[in-house]
Amino acid sequence: MKSLEIRNLQKTYFDPYAGTKVTAVQDVSLDIREGEFVSVVGPSGCGKTTILNMVAGFLPATGGEIRVGGRPVKGPGADRGVVFQSFALFPWKTVLDNVGFGPKMRGVPKAERDRIAREYLALAGLSHAADRYPNELSGGMQQRVGVVRALANDPDVLLMDEPFASVDAQTRMTLQEELTRIWQEKQHTVLFITHDVGEAVFLADRVVVLSKGRVMRDIPVTLPRPRVWDEVTEDEDFKRLSAEVLHMVRAA
């Protein structure tokens, strides 16, 4: 595991149709310690996905710096695993081959990477689906594969971009509980983007509220782990924190 440092990050881009510059991220600084789980919440258009895309290396930053374990980020790389909102599974690969893709890129031999993939699939209760194609799975199962695929590559930092936004409410709760369970086991450094306040508080050690391309507040979450929805929903701290964050997001 490694730490993630974001310093004075800025993103402006050129809109060819308007012929002007647009600012998506104004000035964001954010530190995530090794093994820390941080949620970033904010209304749509606040620049949270743009930040993740820059950390992932999909978009170049126009200002500031991003460091993973002290090393500056240049382009996408296997040290930062990404879980996409739209899953981004390769439709032409079976579940097993999707999960084994990262190890394959590292040159891990076929037998070994299948073993790794099966181990991680078992972790998410997906062993039975190994030989199916993504198209043949439900949305919830697809996103389990998406999470497991990123984990199986053993990244230093895990970046999650509203990963549970496109699955139904019941499945979402199950996935959130699974994620906290797996996270406790593996202790990854996680940057989790969401617009769902309850989700942000439930999962994270810290919740960062973003507004108009700036960090508005940074709130520690001290709920005990392991966290299970049945208990957390009743928790007074959870209710107070959620209300506080929700208030800020709506004011943002």
Binding site: A56, F58, G75, G77, A78, A88, F90, F101, K104, A150
Partner: peptide
């Protein structure tokens, strides 16, 4: 979809793997 190219890149795919995979 761009996200598939992004996914492959963030899983460590180089130019060659991007082409074949």
């Amino acid at each position: 979809p761009m996200r598939l190219r992004h996914a492959a890149a963030s899983l460590g795919a180089g130019r060659r793997a991007m082409l074949t995979e």
